[in-house]
Design a protein around this nucleic acid. Sequence first.
DNA 1: CCGTACATGTAGCAACCGCTACACCCAAAT
DNA 2: ATTTGGGTGTAGCGGTTGCTACATGTACGG
Lengths: 213, 213
Amino acid sequence: MPRPPDPAKRRALLDRVRAYALRNGLTDLSLRPLARALGTSDRMLLYYFGTKERMIAEALALFERRPLLRVRTALETTGSPTDPAGLRRFMEELWRQFGEPDVRAALPLYLEVMSASVLHPDRYGPVMRDIVTEWTDLLTSVFHGLGMNRDQALTQATVLTDACLGLLMAPLANGHWAQADTAFHALLDALEPGWRIPESTRTSADSTARTAN
Amino acid sequence: MPRPPDPAKRRALLDRVRAYALRNGLTDLSLRPLARALGTSDRMLLYYFGTKERMIAEALALFERRPLLRVRTALETTGSPTDPAGLRRFMEELWRQFGEPDVRAALPLYLEVMSASVLHPDRYGPVMRDIVTEWTDLLTSVFHGLGMNRDQALTQATVLTDACLGLLMAPLANGHWAQADTAFHALLDALEPGWRIPESTRTSADSTARTAN
DNA sequence: CCGTACATGTAGCAACCGCTACACCCAAAT
DNA sequence: ATTTGGGTGTAGCGGTTGCTACATGTACGG
């Protein structure tokens, strides 16, 4: 099965595969119903992608190429977070994007990949690990830019990343999106004061007469 | 398939089924390999449980009957949380229990059930929803006992529950347990001040001249 | 000593799985 | 006019799935 030279149809087909996986999940996905829903045959899917596993891998890679969240847009609208208030605006913009129907509809698939990554680390392990690591790294550099040292920045970034992960996963279980939304802002209320003071190495009593506002 | 009257063997078999599911997951679980690993035949599993679905349901119900976390023990060792410090001790005891090998080994299964509950809400939906709701309710009543009103208590409980959920799930993806451990305590550092003040209705500009230290 | 009920092994069913062999269509190149 | 090669349909392979029919073993009460 050499790679057939038709990138256009291949890409179009892959897009529809991605959409199908988004609606129907990965675990119950089988070639024949998928092909039927796409108006083709399983034969064609294998002709284009060679293997079910490769097809799924390419469909998932499509998410990396065109990510769910538009971080660039968030950075443009809120500005690069150089202070706690900016970081908060940045996070709130990201959370708003998570509330969009398209993004929210993709969350079950991410949960599924996360579950699969534990069961089959060789196949799906890197996918989820890269996502978590990517966000943690991004936020770590942001906190580092706010004046924290590496360890403090990593810790704060982990708190923020993992807490948001939980706030996104829990509503998938109980459906309480509004409750999670309120909790998200309450979380920011609680965390933001901890972002304000770099306290490089706390030299005993620093009076912090920083009257910023 | 009338219920066979042998509760002893049935229970013993079910225990081993639970252990197998704990090690090998639910999605790839099929009767014949399971029976082979247990030294029986698929015929016997169906004889005792009638159906694969019922067998899995009973194995999962075993977790509800004998829960992972010993909340009673936590309440005894740390005391019922009647103040923020007590709540913090309670949460730290629970987190310590989550670090135990047995409990940690069960987390992938919970992640799997959580993923399955989105895909098959009729079958697995209530399981995960009940777990999240149970913790949220418990913590809501705790926060209510701390002086918050219902809404505030619910919000704080959601923050705590969901954030801890994320802190437990993320290491399953990237393996950074120690990092999550540090982040958990940092999260408590950030949240605990918010537990101290009931602040019934926040009156706009609060100067927060709180000179705690 | 036998009958009956619980327990278990063997064989197999129908459906589905990923995947492949093979023939065919048709447009473009030779 | 014929060859070539990308696209496609059909049929089927070997395997696994949950589940069942049937026969047999075994232990115990009559």
